[in-house]
Amino acid sequence: MSSDHAAHAPSSAPNAPHALRFVLHVWRQKNAQSTGEFATFHLDDVSPDMSFLEMLDVLNERLIAAGDDPIAFDHDCREGICGACSLTINGQPHGFERETTTCQTHMRRFEDGATLYIEPFRANAFPIVKDLVVDRSAFDRIIAAGGFVSARTGSAPDANALPVPKGDADRAMDAAACIGCGACVASCKNASAMLFVSAKVAHLSLLPQGQAERGRRVLSMVERMDAEGFGNCTNESECEAACPKGISVANIARLNREYLRALATES
């Protein structure tokens, strides 16, 4: 497709007086094999109330109306809880807002007239499927390698039947907030998946149900993580800053601790 589009018509913005203007450079790539390039779009009538994805929806409708291929991007709940959105805005996964997913980012947060570079999450372990869509099944395979509890846990037990110290419960809950979106990998200069894996390992290793497979789990998950081609952690906390759920790198210290412990104790 041509690299410069003027997607003006048909404009029906009801709040035209407050409409925002943006120049978008969007990564277009046919499939994993092809080499992509940026396509430029000028939007003159973006409502400040639109979410970032709604802005892309509007752009896509115009592309379709003009007979062009719409921009492929991942999305699902649009409530910031599913982890499907997977694009970077000006080099930052989920944009510049702290602890906010792309779908929960609104256009009023951007300066009128801004130029935005919209790219997919970039990592060898997340191959591009099309445009802004990447294949994050490497995360699924890491979970399948050990990110679960195989003991039968039955129905919900009576409160306090399983004693869990308050601090552990809080830390496990904070780690469990991970939605597996992959922003940690996308923001890490080494494309490392340590924050994701650490959240899963910390979550399960802190709770009684996770104890039986504690050592085996961390060894298997790290082994899978390495096999998927993610980089090594260099402790620069870019992942923590990019995480839409505020997962702390303290979990990575815990993962390292769990791994070394398992190395010493697992037969």
Binding site: N90, G91, Y117, A123, A191, S192, G229, T234, E238, A241
Partner: peptide
């Protein structure tokens, strides 16, 4: 080894790169 593996883990770089964690001059020049 770690440095070269890390560079290889992202073949295609971003057009814009913004740090906002605790990446520092020291950490990026190890």
């Amino acid at each position: 080894r770690v440095t070269f593996e890390n560079r290889a883990a992202r073949a295609q770089r971003y057009a814009l790169e913004r740090d906002r964690g605790s990446r520092s001059f020291a950490s990026s020049t190890m």
